[in-house]
Design a protein around this nucleic acid. Structure first.
Length: 448
DNA sequence: TTGACTCAACATCCTTTGCTACAA
DNA sequence: TTGTAGGTTTCCATGTTGAGTCA
């Protein structure tokens, strides 16, 4: 008795004469084609089930020859430990390590050890190029690329999440290992299909912030594997990352700002009370948004909330405070983070500091970051662009003028000041400016 | 190759005080 | 008794990105 497995359009197709394929994990009969198939990610389970029953297998999935790769780096203790934990879990799982702690090196080691065709999936074109450079210089083999205007497959290939999704039907059976960089993205409604459509038995997820507020990290754990190793910034501070300190500075609204804030916030709170919305479950806010589609008062309440948020986040007193921080850290490299692009341009004009937002073109962005790296600029102000997925030069001071309640964003911003300087004993500071007696106090509390 | 554009996807967007069912 | 989680759909706005198209 022989069973044949092959890959077709994001699924594993099972051909068998004397065996009922639906007894295998995830396999169902497809009435349209008359074949038996399972989502590609069940491939490994199906193989294991067949092995257990001692059934001969004609496996047509793994095509490319094994790779002979060696790593020139020495791993640090914790990287070694993380890798062992991943092996112990059967080459599946997520490693949670802070920015700058060498997640890439860890993945390179995993790729070298397994020596199977590997796809690395990343969220941005910037990271796409970084990873390709890294793989090429480390392993000295051709590296393929899906995304950023290129579609070329190799035994080692890097892809954006978007392109991985678009190519999955086509190449989902070609890889033995998939590495998901910034794996928390995989929880997105559409992106999670990537993990389902690829057959790769070995999976490694990398992130600094695994948990998602919407709970979708559980889906990720199902598809990639659970967190097998984690360390936070505190555990690495001093030896491998900079010592750091978070300083919260409270500022007050001016009289006119306070008046505007109370008026707008009041409009929102009044509506919420009248409508009987308690925010007892996470979806209550969604409900309010749905209502605003048809109920003008709900819409007005949301818009008022928006304006209130703008007042509290962009308070004038924060600019004065920023001026003092610039004075205190004269000559040091400083990154300023905000939530609104308007404020970025205002700060840029007032302090004569280069600005980066989503409107800044790729060339100009590269140029600003280059000058920042080389010390020509010592300060940069950015909206949310520099939070993730960009290679940002080390800074020793970060200033969060405004941000969301997202723990992820906070961790990422902190990561921007954590990489050790060349002298290895830099002390980093992250300032957090919070407007007192506003909802921002809650927002700031939530992110930590 | 580039730049400008559109489009779709993703992420965040939240108040104070209180009801109900259910698990530990 | 005490704590904890609870079910839905079709979307106010802003910021950011990648893919695709066209000149």
């Amino acid at each position: 008795m022989t069973v044949t497995l092959r890959f077709e359009d994001g699924a594993v197709v099972v051909d068998a004469d004397d065996l009922d394929p639906t007894t295998l994990p995830g396999v169902e009969r497809d009435d349209r084609t008359g074949s038996h198939r399972a989502p590609a990610h069940r491939y490994r389970e199906i193989r294991e089930a067949l092995d257990e029953r001692g059934i001969d297998l004609d496996d047509r999935l793994e095509r490319a020859a094994p790779l002979d790769l060696s790593l020139r780096y020495d791993l640090r203790d914790y990287q070694e430990e993380a890798l062992d934990a991943w092996h112990d879990n059967g080459e599946r799982g997520v490693v949670e390590l802070p920015t700058g702690s060498g997640k890439t090196v860890l993945a390179l080691a995993a790729i070298a050890e397994l020596g199977v065709p590997t796809l690395v999936v990343v969220p941005t074109v910037d990271l796409l190029e970084q990873w390709r450079r890294e793989l090429e210089s480390e392993f000295d083999v051709p590296v393929g690329q899906f995304g950023g205007g290129e579609q070329r497959a190799e035994a080692l290939t890097v892809a954006t999440y978007d392109s991985a999704y678009l190519r999955a039907d086509d190449v989902g059976g070609d890889f033995g290992l998939v590495v998901f960089d910034e794996v928390h993205h995989l929880g997105g409604e559409g992106y999670r299909d990537i993990a389902r459509l690829f057959a790769a038995p070995a999976r490694l997820g990398l992130t600094a912030t695994f948990e998602r507020p919407d709970g979708a990290h559980e889906v990720v754990a199902e598809l990639v594997g659970p967190v097998v190793f984690e360390l936070d910034a505190d555990a690495l501070a001093g030896e491998h990352l900079a010592e750091y300190e978070v300083r919260k500075i409270e500022v007050r609204l001016s009289e006119s700002e306070r008046e505007e804030y109370e008026r707008e916030q009041g409009t929102f709170v009044d509506y919420v009370r009248d409508a009987g919305i308690t925010f007892s479950s996470g979806s209550d806010y969604q409900e309010l948004v749905y209502r605003s589609g048809s109920d003008p008062r709900a819409r007005e309440a949301l818009l008022a909330k928006q304006r209130a948020r703008e007042v509290m986040m962009n308070a004038d007193a924060k600019l004065e405070e920023l001026a003092r921080i610039f004075e205190r850290h004269r000559g040091e490299r400083i990154i300023v983070f905000t939530a609104h692009t308007d404020l970025v341009y205002r700060l840029s004009e007032r302090f004569l500091v280069p600005a980066i937002t989503s409107e800044t073109g790729a060339a100009e962005r590269r140029e600003i970051l280059r000058r920042f790296r080389e010390g020509e600029y010592t300060r940069v102000v950015a909206a949310n662009v520099l939070d993730e997925g960009v290679d940002v030069p080390d800074a020793s001071v970060g200033v969060v003028i405004s941000g969301t309640g997202s723990e992820r964003q906070f961790t990422q911003r902190l990561g921007r000041v954590l990489r050790p300087g060349s002298d290895g004993e830099k002390r980093a500071v992250l300032y957090e400016l919070v407007t007192s007696e506003t909802a921002e106090e809650r927002v700031a509390a939530r992110r930590r």
